[in-house]
Amino acid sequence: MRETTVTFRSGDHTLAGTLTSPDGDGPAPAVLLVPGSGPVDRDSNHQRMPLGITRHLAHALHDAGFATFRYDKRGVGASTGDWRAAGLHDNIADAARALATLTAAPGVDPTTVLVVGHSEGALIAGALAAAGTPPTGVVLLSPSATRGEELLLWQAAQIAPTLPAPVRALLRLLRTDLVARVAKNHARIRATTTDVARVDGARINARWSREFMAYDPRDDLARITVPVLAVTGGKDLQVDAADLETVARTVPGPVETHVVPDVSHLLRRQDGPASMSRYRREVREPLDPRVVGLVTRWAAAQVARVG
């Protein structure tokens, strides 16, 4: 595998990423890989948890004959800036510049460039596809079709029953309703005006949170005319698998959706009841081959369609 470090400018910042090139002289079809939320690098790795999602996908897509580009978010890895000060729309702008960089890269066929996004990256992929010059197609992994504030409340309701028994007992003792607490914090966040603020004792990316809570993915989904593949795990506690039906109804272009049984938000197999407590164990395993197979086969089909 040929891997090259590539930098590009976005606003006042320099972002860095890895371009992988398949064997042969090209030009090759290409895929931009957009990671999820928070301070994650080009491989989707967080300082506290190495998710590896975009790295796994890059290698699988390379083996399928694609060039790929994945990048460090602002203030992470080799990219400049502060991730806490970046808003959702900044992240979309960064991805648009990454897409332009990939499209212009040597050995890339500019007529066949796809975008694959996971979690927040799926929202960003949808926003790019809805823009004036869309990619050839988009893959939405663990996507949401719900306004951000409503999604966060849904997450709290799903996660609360899966917390360890001692934590649930403490919440009952303190008479703390997790959903109500999240809603209260939302009001505090909406009242902030700075990029970074302290809410409920923690220093948070306030501007991103305000923009995310106000963002409704359906507005962009309704403007996507290129083919879409949307995939969610059946045990995802961070997005509602039922949102795939909304994606299919809202996108005017061709849509293919899949709910993959026993797969979590991290795109790994999860046995037993759905729980985020298993994440640390899951990241030691590769991505579920059913998810990877859906992505690589669908991407190859788009190349054949364009070709």
Rank of each mutant, 00 (worst) to 15 (best):
A191D: 15
T232R: 03
L153V: 15
R168F: 06
T192C: 08
D200C: 06
Y215D: 00
V139N: 01
R168I: 07
V228R: 01
R207T: 05
R188C: 02
L140N: 01
T193L: 06
T192I: 04
T193A: 15
W154H: 14
P161A: 03
R147E: 10
W154A: 11
T133N: 10
L237M: 07
A169G: 13
L173H: 14
T225M: 01
A157F: 11
P166V: 08
A183Q: 12
R207K: 08
T232H: 01
N185P: 02
H186D: 08
A157E: 15
Y215C: 02
R203L: 11
S144R: 13
A187N: 05
G148F: 03
A165R: 14
T193G: 15
L152A: 13
R223S: 10
R207N: 01
R203P: 01
T146K: 08
A131F: 04
Y215W: 12
R181S: 09
L141V: 09
R218L: 04
P143Y: 09
R181W: 03
Q158P: 15
H186M: 12
L173P: 04
P143Q: 12
R181F: 05
R175M: 00
N185K: 14
W154Y: 15
L153P: 11
A156K: 03
L152E: 13
L173T: 15
L171H: 13
A131K: 00
T162D: 12
D220M: 08
P143F: 06
R223H: 15
G233N: 03
V228Y: 01
L141N: 08
K184E: 15
Y215H: 13
P166D: 12
V199M: 07
A127T: 07
V139W: 01
L173I: 06
A183W: 07
V179I: 09
S209Q: 04
A180Q: 08
D177E: 12
M213L: 07
A180M: 02
V179S: 02
P217G: 11
T194F: 05
A127L: 03
T232Y: 00
V199Y: 03
V231T: 06
Q155Y: 06
L173F: 12
R207I: 01
A156N: 08
A169L: 13
T133C: 03
L237R: 02
R168Y: 10
L140G: 02
A156E: 05
H186F: 11
W208H: 05
L229C: 10
A165L: 13
A130D: 00
Y215K: 04
D236A: 07
A169Q: 15
G132C: 00
G132H: 02
W208T: 03
S209D: 00
R181H: 09
L237I: 07
A127V: 05
